[in-house]
């Protein structure tokens, strides 16, 4: 049952890492990471803060673009090139195909993010000569990876029924919304003036939307003296949240994709 998933995933990775558009995005990201230290010449502490902020931002932004571009074309390309027919005429269930494609995307993403994180660590070490800060620094890309996996699941879910271009904006929009809504929701909940109905509605939206803001944990890493309490249990919690959300999206995607006439 898992062998076809693994094969499809492996093939997807092979294809993904050869897609020129992804490689160009990756190259730009890496290039920015390398030149980032040259951008900020502030006081020692500011420099570290700004440097960390920018580098993590670059990784996150690049990963998000890669995650979306990588996944929105995945299923439509298979259909357009008719490769999906050969695969589906073999004893492969559609859910296996979808899950295989998803894991392929996530694996490719993992490879690309690992590369960027290595560049981050190397550049940071070159610049700061401070190895002690590196384990902390790596936490952010790890959480970004969960975030991007969730984003990829969103995109692959949509790709079972909308065109790539629409999907690009849909997934991108949802990423913005999912990143924005949590702090907005917080503001709403804290505000005394908000009517109860609006709060309930916000609660509803907050539950439905994938909460991408959960994974934006860069702030305490960028700024000295900040810390998330119960850090590991928080990470565990948001990871479990992400995995459940991804599972839900994949199951929903399977239901749609199974009825889809390709």
């Amino acid at each position: 049952m898992f062998k076809p998933i693994a094969s499809i995933a492996a093939t997807t990775v092979g294809e993904a890492i050869r897609r020129k558009v992804l490689l160009i995005i990756l190259l730009i990201g890496v290039l920015f990471l390398v030149v980032a230290p040259g951008l900020g010449m502030l006081s020692a502490r500011s420099e570290t803060t700004v440097l960390r902020g920018m580098m993590l931002g670059i990784i996150q932004l690049t990963s998000a673009v890669i995650a979306i571009v990588l996944t929105v074309y995945m299923i439509p390309n298979e259909i357009e090139r008719r490769t999906i027919y050969t695969i589906l005429s073999k004893p492969v269930q559609r859910w296996q195909f979808l899950v295989g494609k998803y894991f392929g995307a996530v694996s490719a993403l993992l490879m690309m993010m690992t590369l960027m994180t290595s560049v981050l660590v190397f550049t940071f070490w070159l610049q700061q000569r401070d190895a002690s800060a590196i384990p902390d620094l790596i936490k952010a890309p790890v959480m970004y990876f969960v975030q991007m996996s969730l984003l990829a699941a969103v995109a692959i879910f949509f790709s079972t029924f909308v065109s790539p271009l629409v999907n690009f904006f849909l997934s991108g929009g949802l990423y913005l919304l999912g990143s924005l809504f949590a702090p907005f929701f917080q503001t709403l909940q804290e505000s005394q003036g908000t009517p109860q109905a609006a709060k309930i509605f916000a609660q509803l939206v907050n539950t439905i939307l994938p909460n991408f803001a959960n994974y934006n944990i860069q702030n305490p890493i960028i700024n000295p003296g900040q810390q998330i309490q119960n850090e590991s249990s928080y990470y565990l919690q948001v990871t479990v949240y992400g995995v459940l959300y991804i599972a839900g999206l994949l199951v929903a995607g399977t239901i749609v994709f199974d009825r889809r006439e390709v």
């Binding site: 951008l39 900020g40 010449m41 502030l42 500011s46 803060t49 700004v50 440097l51 902020g53 920018m54 993590l56 931002g57 670059i58 996150q60 932004l61 998000a64 990423y175 913005l176 990143s179 924005l180 991408f212 803001a213 934006n216 860069q218 702030n219 960028i222």
Partner: peptide
């Protein structure tokens, strides 16, 4: 809005410098 607040803050701070 997309969660890149820290990055923007960093870029702005470089500009302020």
């Amino acid at each position: 809005l997309a969660g890149f607040r820290e990055m923007i803050a960093g870029i702005l701070w470089v500009r302020a410098d």
